[in-house]
């Protein structure tokens, strides 16, 4: 692709770690869900009998996490669609690098979304610590 193609790309340089935002959200959601469940079940669970507060908390985390992942995914998808070039984004240009990062991040956002839903589904089916 020509250098003229680079005009489509915003001035701001790309960042490698933007790739990790969606899975980082998954990681934080995962850790928060695990810790909430572990602490509740260790401290209050045996007396409380059920784990409803944990379920509510995880539901709230999930709404936040899925929203964030969707936002990151959308931003990334827009990057992937910059300009007119199509996959596999292997040209030696800033524009294709930008598109590539967008594409890979979009895929990671989809994976993170599914993995977060997997975590959330647990409290749909499991209602107690035992």
């Amino acid at each position: 692709m020509t250098d003229a193609d680079d005009e489509f790309v915003p001035e701001k340089p790309d960042r490698l770690w933007s790739l990790t935002f969606p899975p980082l959200v998954w990681a934080v959601h995962f850790l928060a869900s695990y810790l909430t469940a572990a602490i509740w079940c260790a401290k209050a669970g045996p007396q409380a009998g059920d784990a409803d507060p944990v379920r509510v908390a995880i539901a709230a985390y999930t709404v936040v996490a899925l929203t964030l992942i969707a936002v990151f995914g959308w931003i990334a998808f827009r990057k992937h669609r910059t300009g007119e070039a199509t996959l596999p984004h292997d040209f030696d240009s800033r524009a294709d690098q930008h598109r590539f990062l967008g594409f890979a991040t979009t895929l990671l956002a989809i994976l993170s979304f599914v993995a977060t839903v997997f975590t959330a589904l647990v409290v749909v089916f499991v209602g107690s610590c035992h």
Partner: peptide, 19 residues
């Protein structure tokens, strides 16, 4: 371990099969 904990880790163990 509590059932919820087991469920959460079981879910992630299934999810890793995707990538």
């Amino acid at each position: 371990l509590p059932g919820i904990t087991i469920g959460i880790f079981s879910a992630a163990s299934e999810a890793v099969a995707i990538p």
